[in-house]
Design a binder for these strands. Structure first.
Lengths: 340, 340
DNA sequence: ATTGCGCATGCATACGTATGTATTTTTTAT
DNA sequence: ATAAAAAATACATACGTATGCATGCGCAAT
């Protein structure tokens, strides 16, 4: 049980050649039924496991996909955005379901990324996950395309590049939650989330938000839009700034649940009641959203479906098939933070 | 830029042999300074990347560690316990820091696990993560030991087995939070968390809890201990059951933050004020804990340190060195849920 | 009986790297 | 100038698997 068993060892015990062992274990129709059974029995008995390095070297396929997770640069070293963490979980599950192992790698967006898992043959393809909100991003994508790397990404469609993306309809989601709050008879809306500097995702949500306001003859007041990145601390600060502005408002649409959570804290500390005085909606439906007080109404992104789509499309590309960019709808999850 | 470059291609262009290329790229002192520079230049120019499969096959080292994440069987398919998710993040970071890639794999505890990453040479060692609360567990560990697999695990020390564990001092943590609440002049303590059926971690926390009560001449009432697994739903149900018991209490110690979150919801729905009527403490300090209302006082497990310790110790084992089981202290994080 | 065919198996090789050993080139000492 | 030592490079091989090709065997058709 100690030293490693090879297919030659199995071959010896079974009295056949190594090639027959290899074929038998892979259920090749070329080997006799009886022989196959005997070989597989012996292999199991000796606890033989195929050496994936040798196998991958020979077949040029690793049976592994790599997940590159880009961090919010603002997050401190130890935390991961819970939304992406949840995506990570669903991607892990989805790839396991397809029989692929998952290599997870955190990346600093700013630095050069270490996207050479496919070049090094450690992975057959790559999933990119994170807010694509920095300048070099497209350049990097172009490079990946040029190298003919198989990859898919989470996020909004990238115009002009033949890149397969899976993302949520952020515009629609932003519209959806805003409309919901409008129906609660709120008139003065604030929006917390980086619009000029931030991610394209946030911008789309803001556009949807504004469209909903316009469609309902409500004003868009730029004083009521405050930049924030996706942390509760940032949301807290943004809401504080908003409160100090002196402009009145009775609803906050946050670009993410984390921002909303921070905002709720700031608003409550200022003595306002949620939802009576101020309604709050988030975006994402992270786990925490159901545990805030009051529980948060938000636009849910279906991370389970997203993970499956990402993996499926990536594997299509790996197999040399075509794959299409896909936009998923968001679902309005009504809880308590906007009134009943 | 299309077809894959090998070290032979580099060798050809540099006018040297393949072995010299290999040595040059690995900065072997056997190659001339000037030659090394030239080879590395050409390699960079051609965007050459070492084939890790071939390299691993040759060296018998994968440069990868595998993380086996065992799920709470109670969790639905799509969710991961946020505490373990956080551990996952820190382990990913810690292994990256050591230059290792991380293979992540979710496992159903009930089934046979797929712990053959080392057998298949896909990983040099394995980290086991999850509550070790089911019957076959030790048996599996014994098997891993017998196969001489390099592995470390998160959790309490396993008596009688030479297994390297990294865990928190759950007894002390349970003691610590309970003592804190005792100092807030609470007298009647409930404990929510599986004790008879649950994980050894929960049991240790309960023991610490009870010890703190005894040391302060407070009664341990078994009617005030309700089993719960680590989900907020389970915590919610447990707290409801507790409330219906009719036994009075003014403090709840939960075996985990998730349980505490559910309990808080139940308590608040029943019309009680936290912390005025009932104090609540959790365990773990997951991200959500700071965002509950009121913010939760809890015993923090240092996931960053834990991740680093797990990776460090595993790599020690991989290198053939000795490694010791280590218990980390918990830190009391005082917020609002027990009063000020 | 010879040929031909299908089936099962063995043989040989390639995947790309890392490294022990042999060989060549350069330097140093005499 | 020559031998010896040192340095740099080339040669050869092994890691363990998967697979194209060749081989051998039994059986049916001619």
């Amino acid at each position: 049980m100690k030293s490693k068993q090879t297919s030659f060892d199995i071959a010896y015990r079974a009295g056949v050649s190594q090639s027959t062992v290899s074929r038998a274990l892979r259920n090749s129709p070329l080997v006799n039924e009886e022989t196959r059974r005997r070989v597989q029995e012996i292999a199991a008995e000796l606890n033989y496991k195929v050496d994936k390095n040798a196998s991958s070297l020979r077949t040029q396929q690793s049976g592994t996909i790599a997940l590159l997770l880009f961090e919010d640069p603002t997050n401190d070293d130890s935390l991961i955005n819970p939304f992406f963490l949840s995506m990570l979980g669903s991607i892990t599950r989805a790839s396991a379901k397809k029989g692929y192992d998952l290599l997870v790698s955190f990346q600093q967006m700013s630095n050069d990324w270490h996207a050479d898992f496919e070049d090094t043959r450690k992975a057959d393809g790559i999933i990119l996950l994170g807010y694509g909100d920095y300048t070099d991003y497209e350049e990097k994508l172009v490079q990946l395309i040029k190298q003919e790397t198989h990859f898919v990404r989470w996020g909004a469609d990238v115009k002009g590049l033949s890149v397969v993306s899976v993302g949520c309809d952020n515009f629609h989601g932003g519209y959806q939650v805003t409309e919901h709050v409008i129906n609660k008879n709120r008139k003065n809306f604030a929006f917390l989330g980086g619009v000029t500097t931030g991610s394209p995702e946030f911008l789309d949500r803001y556009k949807g938000h504004c469209q909903a306001l316009k469609d309902n003859n409500l004003a868009v007041d730029s004083k009521l839009q405050i930049d924030a990145v996706s942390t509760d601390e940032s949301g807290y600060l943004a809401a504080k700034q908003l409160l100090e502005n002196g402009v009145t408002f009775d609803a906050i649409c946050a670009a993410s649940d984390l921002i909303a959570i921070g905002a709720m804290r700031a608003v409550q500390e200022a003595g306002y009641n949620i939802p009576k005085d101020i309604a709050v909606v988030g975006f994402d439906d992270i786990a925490t959203a159901s545990s805030t007080f009051p529980a948060m109404t938000t636009a849910k992104q279906d991370t389970v479906l997203a993970g499956e789509l990402l993996v499926d499309k990536l594997l299509q590309l790996v197999r040399g098939e075509e794959a299409q960019t896909q936009l998923m709808p968001t679902t309005l999850v009504v809880r308590k933070s906007c009134g009943s």
